[in-house]
Nucleic acid binder design. Structure first.
Length: 751
RNA sequence: GCGCGGUUAGCUCAGUUGGUAGAGCGCUUCGUUUACACCGAAGAUGUCGCAGGUUCGAGUCCUGCACCGCGCACCA
């Protein structure tokens, strides 16, 4: 029998640009990313084990970067692997409105081009602009995600601001409100004067800054501050009760002294929160603009007076400085204090941390505001289980629930050491401020009336505060695993096992894995555990798998100012998406930062080409396709490939995708190509027909195993080859000659 | 201050219950014979951060230290 020749399509070298769009079209047409279609076509068993992931929805603010690319690749590998293992696999796509970030970006763009603020435009017009921007941006992100080869089920696509998600947000809000978990109160919050909104504790980023540190004479005391402009209202002087230096002063004692705008009467307060080692061990407090001071004031029932308004302007309490911005007023105030002889010393170069809004905002000014909060220390009843009960029926606080869910192992955080960071965060957790004053986001309905905890002061507000607040974007994100699966609409009518989106909640929740960056462990992972615990009595996912930051070849963070961005799609156009995918995975230990460089990507392009050429060699020698029998000697080689399959499976199951990729890479290149193929050349040249047929069949078998093992990592080149494999291909035992299936994407994983 | 990582070849990093130090890239030399020059063959390069300890044996386990990175808290 004459050897067949590889099909003409096997041009050399492998052309990714030509093959990738064809593969994408093929996959899209098949619709096998939709598990319902797989079941209908008999690709997946009706009662197969479910495997589900929600894609962390990328922000609609920008284009796809290497970080999102890494996330997509990791998840796509897991998804394709489990699909090939015969599971009922669902991977849900979505996009995130990213409220603050998006509004800040659009506002910025408008100001740049039109010199107009959002107040010039008005709420309606701004939202129109924001929506136009997000629609455009969404298309870009979706298109780029598809190009990555992500086998997402787009028929189930969700957007955080669409109607279904809005319904889920309202349902969640009402239930938590009725349970007393959501309350409204006048509390000290993180106020961003630039974006004119509150932000949560997690959104704050501390930036080191150098300032002058001023020492004042406050009656007989020496007090220090970096913020003289806040000191107008200071009429309490606080010290530690055990401080020997001040034992002659008694709690509640009144002292007359000269201060910025004239004589005042100050009151001595003894409080254990004062650090005796810091400065003179005495301080004055500004309760309206400092959390610690606010707490001291509350403990002792002291007056709380605002000094600075929402825009950073001094209030009438500042006397002659009222109406001035704090920035401009500070040097003038210092000057006046100097003239009055109240400054004893100025230390320059005092290094301290300044709180800023990490979402593109300004320097945080603590303010007392009437805001909505989620109580994390209030004991509540958790609901009965809807699917797999983890917290059902128990009475505990949200904080306890979040702690227990992880410590009990119900949710496993990987790598494991991140759970310590998680616990540490929980221990320091305060009530979550969920209301925002930005316009873009889910609005809190006006008909909600909170308990109005009265504090002495009314925060002096600007007129636009009359608008209803919107919700922290992470409130809706916290619902994501179930708001994308039909909750609350289908929560009661779903039928287990039956295909169809209306049964998703019961079929696919809890999700199998949540894969995301470690930087949003608190923002998202913790909030999802909180939300699904209280609302469903369920865990949102069994495992939280965290990945690190993708850095450039020199280990620097990718940033616009450095200009070191490596665009995944540019790289794919140049070297192929398979190469981009492999280079992101190889050498990436879970949870640690990784690096990517063009050289690395080029290396894996060579590998894609290698696979292509191996195939050509195997097909060129593909004699006796239908009747070959593999001799024991050659069977050993096939078994070797099967052993690699076990190794790859083991690594993927333990989320060591890097080791899995490494194992298959080395088998294919160093063993299969370099050794087995080379040896085979001798045999195939020989005259022993049985030996030739056997060896050719074995090579074919090893090729098929290799393609399957590589498919999750490099779906394009492997599928392109699979499409070219001659029909029929070998059937191993039955002797029946037929191609196992049309798409490698749903082929059986080798065992 | 509390906590979490890291330190292995020139560079980037593996090293899974302790058993003779590994890969990729780069470097040197050579080579087109049934795929592949986007290839192949051969080669050079290491006090495994430092100091102790446990052990027959430590890159791996324990203690201390140094340096780098990160998180959280404080910052009057």
């Amino acid at each position: 029998m004459e050897p067949s020749k590889a099909p003409e399509q096997f041009l050399k070298p492998y052309n990714s640009a030509e093959n990738e769009p064809r593969m994408l079209e093929l996959w899209e047409k098949s619709d096998y990313a939709n598990p319902d279609v797989c079941i209908k076509n008999g690709v997946t068993a009706f009662d197969a084990e479910p495997y589900s992931i929600v894609l962390p929805p990328p922000n609609v603010t920008g284009i796809l970067h290497m970080g999102s690319a890494l996330m997509i690749v990791i998840e796509d590998i897991l998804i394709r692997y489990h699909r090939m293992r015969g599971k009922k696999v669902l991977w849900i796509p979505g996009t995130d409105s990213a409220a603050i970030a998006t509004q800040a970006k659009v506002e910025g763009d408008i100001y740049k081009t039109e010199k107009k603020t959002r107040h010039d435009l008005g709420r309606e017009e701004l939202l129109k602009r924001v929506n136009a921007f997000t629609e455009e941006s969404k298309k870009t992100i979706i298109d780029q995600t598809k190009k990555m080869g992500a086998s997402l089920d787009w028929s189930r696509y969700a957007y955080t601001m669409d109607e279904k998600r809005y319904a889920a947000v309202m349902e969640a809000f009402v239930r938590m409100y009725n349970a007393g978990l959501i309350y409204r109160g006048d509390r000290i919050v993180n106020w961003d004067p630039k974006l004119q909104t509150t932000v949560s504790d997690e959104e704050i980023e501390y930036v080191e800054q150098q300032d002058s540190f001023y020492h004042f004479k406050y009656g007989p005391f020496d007090i220090g501050t970096v913020r003289p402009e806040t000191k107008f209202g200071d009429k309490y002087v606080v010290m530690h009760p055990d401080d020997e230096r001040y034992k002659d002063y008694t709690h509640g004692q009144k002292i007359d002294l000269e201060w910025i705008n004239g004589p005042i009467t100050a009151t001595i307060i003894k409080d254990r929160s004062v650090d005796r080692e810091f400065g003179s061990g005495v301080m004055t407090i500004t309760p309206a603009h400092s959390l610690i001071d606010f707490e001291i004031a509350q403990r002792h029932g002291l007056d709380i007076e605002c000094v600075i308004d929402d825009r950073g302007i001094l209030l009438p309490i500042a006397g002659e400085f009222a109406g001035q911005h704090i920035k401009k007023a500070r040097p003038l105030i210092v000057e006046k204090l100097k003239q009055k002889g109240l400054i004893s010393k100025i230390d320059d170069g005092y290094v301290h941390n300044v709180a800023t809004n990490s979402r593109g905002g300004g320097i945080i000014e603590p303010q007392i505001k009437r805001q909505w909060f989620i109580a994390v220390n209030k004991e509540v009843e958790f609901p009965d289980p809807s699917t797999e009960l983890r917290a059902g029926g128990k009475k505990m606080t949200l904080k306890e629930h979040m702690r227990e869910t992880v410590s009990s192992g119900a949710v496993e955080i990987l790598p494991e050491h991140f759970s310590k960071i998680y616990f540490h965060w929980i221990d320091n957790l305060r009530d979550w401020c969920i209301s925002r004053q930005i316009w873009f986001g889910h609005r809190i309905p006006a008909w909600f009336k909170g308990d109005e905890v009265k504090v002495q002061t009314e925060s002096p507000g600007a007129e636009w505060q009359q608008d209803p607040d919107t919700l922290d974007t992470w409130f809706s994100s916290g619902l994501w695993t179930f708001s994308t699966l039909g909750w609350p609409h289908f929560a009661k009518t779903a039928t287990r096992g039956e295909p169809g989106p209306e049964n998703d909640l019961v079929n696919y929740h809890p999700t199998s894995v949540l894969e995301t960056g470690y930087d949003i462990l608190f923002f998202w992972v913790a909030r999802m555990i909180l939300m699904s615990g209280f609302l469903l009595g369920d865990i949102p996912f069994r495992k939280a798998l965290l990945h690190g930051i993708v850095r450039d070849g020199q280990g620097r963070k990718i940033s616009k100012s450095l200009g070191n961005n490596i665009d995944p799609l540019d790289m794919a156009a140049k070297y192929g998406m398979d190469a981009v995918r492999m280079s992101l995975i190889a050498g990436m230990a879970p949870g640690t930062d990784s690096r990517i460089s063009e050289e690395k990507i080029r290396g894996y392009k060579h590998f894609a080409n290698k696979i292509w050429n191996i195939t050509r060699f195997v097909l060129d020698n593909n004699v006796g396709l239908t009747k070959s029998h593999i001799l024991p000697d050659d069977l050993v080689l096939v078994d070797e490939a099967r052993k690699v399959a076990d190794e790859v499976s083991k690594h993927i199951d333990s989320f060591r995708l890097d080791l899995a990729a490494d194992a298959v890479y080395h088998f294919v290149w160093d063993r299969f190509a370099a050794e087995i193929l080379e040896q085979s050349k001798e045999i195939l040249k020989g005259s022993d027909a049985d030996a030739k047929n056997s060896r050719a069949a074995a090579l074919h078998e090893i090729l098929i195993i290799s393609l399957k093992l590589l498919h999750p990592f490099m779906p394009f080149v492997t599928e392109a080859i699979w499409q070219q494999l001659p029909q029929p291909t070998l059937a191993s035992s039955s002797g029946e000659a037929k191609k196992e299936c049309d798409l490698l994407m749903v082929a059986k994983w080798p065992q």
